[in-house]
Design a protein around this nucleic acid. Structure first.
Lengths: 231, 231
DNA sequence: GTCTATAACGAGATAGAC
DNA sequence: GTCTATCTCGTTATAGAC
């Protein structure tokens, strides 16, 4: 009994993975807007109605691809973070940022899926939130650690932003000063601005040595949120 | 003769504008990937082959929409820049940034067209470059003016980035110090990271008071490139 | 119970004959 | 420029294999 169930479960996992792989291939060639269940089924030698045993709708397949992409990016970022020197917050920060960039360059279509234009007619459900939050949580952790070991520079905070900054801090990192929380969220968005501009061609004929440029830019982002180099 | 030719030219301009308007509507509903000459023709009560008198291909229509979008954004940014106090570089900087954000919020689909995911199978020709450069040139002008009136703070520049920074300065603003040119390009990309995150939903359930958050973030971008508030 | 296949729907795109 | 025949699509109902 358990073997039969195990075999069935294994088969199900394999077919699910094959569907997602074919869908990712289609994503690269046609874009998310044109992702078609029928084309995926055709590529797998299945019939389109069979796919509905695995994904109840085209949008659910899209959602699975989005979560996978966020998780793949999050895993890459977390691995880079774990390998960085624990005592140096700036090195940890730049390690995460460079992992994000490397993942994006290696998975441009999945990056476009999660950080590019929204897919017309599709709205991401709340189930994508935990996976989407992983990189942000890593960055929060780095700043929190620096704050705990008194390694966080103080930042200015205009009165206009104080309520929002306090709300952000309460939501994301209650132990952080509000101005650090606000700076952190801005740096998070700015990081993806740098990555997106490179990936989507805005740096063509502008920035040549992108590696060096990016490293310097994210180092400045790190100091912008109050991090200072470790020993 | 000249009246006839004038009327014909006028009609041609009108039809061209109507085509682009219909295409923009389709852009909003189906996305750039699904922009189809036939659908545009249908909406206008024309036959698809008639459109080829105005745009030789779907890609040329896309290119026209892209240039229009860049120009519309550039115009909005330039108007905001012209209305800002000339003596205060930070105010001029934030005025441009806020105009970019306001334009993006008002034209989300056109923003997605020019700063979102690339359209599969389409590659923007060099003819889009001048329009695409307008916002960047504005920002360069602000920093150059500040530098000319000795109002630019000095920035650090690691040896690793020096060659690239010098290349950037030579290309974009020969009168600026290399470190300012590099910081400027980074801030330019980061600005669109902030705008894109808000527009594409990444700030949902994260940032509430987006106006205040954005104003503070771009003010910090301004100081990050070395600008200081005027009198 | 779990899956795949057939057939069909309503809608839209497309290619080619006229 | 028009019409038609043939494609695509997401999705569902149904029937049968394992």
């Amino acid at each position: 009994m358990s073997t039969a169930q195990g075999a069935r479960a294994r088969a199900r996992i394999e077919v699910t993975a094959a569907i997602k792989d074919a869908a990712r291939r289609q994503l690269a060639e046609e874009g998310a807007a044109k992702l078609s269940l029928r084309a995926v089924a055709r590529e797998l030698g299945m019939v389109s109605s069979a796919l509905y045993r695995y994904f109840p709708s085209r949008d659910d397949l899209l959602t699975a691809l989005i979560i996978d992409a966020y998780d793949s990016l999050g895993e890459a970022a977390e691995a880079a973070h774990a390998a960085a020197p624990a005592a140096d917050p700036v090195r940890r920060w730049t390690a995460v940022c460079e992992a994000v960039r490397a993942w994006a360059l290696g998975h441009p279509h999945e990056y476009a899926l999660i950080y590019g234009s929204p897919v017309p007619g599709y709205s991401a459900p709340q189930t994508t939130v935990p996976a989407a939050a992983r990189v942000g949580l890593l960055l929060i952790g780095i700043v929190r650690d620096a704050h705990d070991s008194s390694g966080l520079t103080e930042l200015p905070l205009p009165a206009e932003l104080r309520p929002e900054a306090e709300r952000l801090a309460a939501d994301l990192a209650p132990d952080l000063p509000p101005e650090a929380a606000a700076a952190l969220v801005a740096a998070w968005a700015e990081l993806f601005g740098l990555v997106g501009f490179e990936l989507f061609g805005q740096f063509n004929r502008v920035v040549e040595d992108r590696e060096a440029f990016f490293r310097h830019a994210v180092t400045r982002l790190a100091t912008g949120v109050g991090l200072t180099a470790g020993p």
